[in-house]
């Protein structure tokens, strides 16, 4: 038990992202309401974004804004600044996830106008008739 806890605590950020991702995955697959599916998709994407961001973090490191003259003289001490690249990548991923959500919401609006409901079961029932 001790050992198991130690494993979890050592890499707790990754465990958190796995839990969050599974919550999102469950909502996408298990829920029957289309908006809940979409929110599940957002949780799923957020989990991955958090994983990337936490991969760039370091203990005791500062933000990666450096003094130009100092860097020219001593060079960059990589251990003292967090890795900015995952953050920059995730900015793009956030843009992607926002646009997918936007398209999905627009489509949900059309579905609601067509069927008057966003419950998958009720839509399938109406289609069956």
């Amino acid at each position: 038990m001790e050992q198991f806890l130690a494993i979890i605590i050592a890499k707790y950020n990754y465990w958190l992202y796995v839990v969050l991702m599974m919550i999102g995955f469950y909502a996408m697959i298990g829920k029957r309401n289309l908006v809940k599916k979409l929110i599940g998709m957002n949780i799923f994407q957020t989990a991955i974004i958090l994983m990337f961001v936490s991969a760039g973090a370091k203990y005791g490191a500062k933000i990666p804004i450096l003094n130009k003259h100092e860097v020219l003289e001593h060079g960059v001490r990589a251990a003292q600044v967090v890795n900015p690249l995952p953050h920059v990548l995730m900015l793009t991923a956030i843009v992607v996830s926002v646009s997918v959500t936007g398209v999905a919401l627009a489509i949900l609006q059309r579905i609601y106008r067509e069927y008057g409901t966003l419950e998958e079961d009720e839509i399938l029932e109406k289609l069956g008739r």
């Binding site: 996408m28 991969a55 067509e114």
Partner: peptide, 26 residues
Amino acid sequence: PLASFNYIIMGSIGACFYLLGVGYLY
């Protein structure tokens, strides 16, 4: 639109898995 929404859900899972794999590689 309903077919497109299902595609969005499945397609996003696919893209997220790809991104996750790239994260591991990174």
